[in-house]
Simulated scan of single mutants.
Amino acid sequence: MRNRLSRALPVAVALLAAVAVLPVSAATAAVPEPAAHTAQTALAALAALADEDETYIVTLQKDLDPVAVADMVGATPVHVFDTALHGFSARLSPAQVTALRAMPGVESIEEDGETAGFGTF
């Protein structure tokens, strides 16, 4: 399982980069008093968002187009598999997982994670 902080870090960097390019007038809008711990609150919100949608590996029957199936549930594939298995990986909400489980032709949906072998032979 990947570290949850490593999932939120790219989102936090993107957010900070977006804030950095705001025009000075937008960045200095009249605010009576800044909220305490604004940066920490934003990072906590980003971490919560990152935890909501897990990455899943979805395997499909050979006659289905993985990109089309992902599009049907509003998902964007992170990777499309066509060699060892037929399907895609994507960040999916619980509602998207439920919708995929109900679709004909979806063979399996597994949460992505790390595996370890027993060593070398």
Rank of each mutant, 00 (worst) to 15 (best):
R2F: 07
N3M: 08
N3C: 11
R4C: 05
L5F: 15
L5G: 15
S6R: 10
S6I: 09
R7N: 07
R7Y: 03
A8F: 02
A8T: 13
P10T: 13
V11Q: 01
A12G: 07
A12I: 14
V13W: 04
A14S: 12
A14C: 11
V19I: 08
A20W: 01
L22P: 01
P23H: 05
P23I: 09
P23K: 03
V24H: 04
V24D: 10
A26L: 15
A26H: 07
A26T: 10
A26K: 10
A27M: 08
A27S: 08
A29C: 10
V31E: 11
P32F: 15
P34M: 09
A35C: 02
A35N: 01
A36E: 15
A36P: 02
H37P: 02
H37F: 09
T38G: 15
Q40G: 14
Q40L: 15
A42T: 03
A42C: 05
A44R: 10
A45Q: 05
A45D: 07
A47V: 10
A48P: 06
L49A: 10
L49W: 11
A50V: 11
D51N: 09
D51T: 11
E52Y: 04
D53Q: 09
D53W: 05
E54F: 07
T55N: 09
T55F: 06
Y56P: 01
V58H: 01
V58S: 03
V58D: 06
T59N: 00
Q61H: 07
K62S: 15
D63S: 06
D63F: 02
D63P: 00
L64K: 10
L64I: 12
L64F: 13
L64C: 11
L64Q: 14
P66D: 12
V67M: 05
A68R: 02
A68I: 09
V69Q: 03
V69R: 00
A70F: 11
A70Q: 11
D71S: 06
D71Y: 01
D71V: 03
M72S: 04
M72K: 01
M72D: 11
V73F: 04
G74P: 06
G74L: 08
G74Y: 05
A75L: 05
T76H: 09
V78S: 13
V78N: 12
V80R: 03
F81E: 13
T83N: 13
A84R: 15
F88A: 14
F88Q: 11
F88D: 14
F88V: 14
S89P: 07
A90W: 00
A90T: 00
R91D: 15
R91N: 14
L92W: 03
L92I: 08
L92K: 01
Q96E: 10
T98V: 10
A99C: 06
A99H: 02
A99M: 05
R101L: 02
R101Q: 05
A102D: 12
A102E: 13
A102T: 07
M103Y: 02
G105S: 01
V106C: 07
E107N: 03
E107D: 06
I109C: 11
G113N: 06
G113P: 04
E114G: 07
E114S: 12
E114T: 13
T115G: 11
A116S: 12
F118V: 15
F118P: 14
G119D: 11
G119S: 11
G119Y: 03
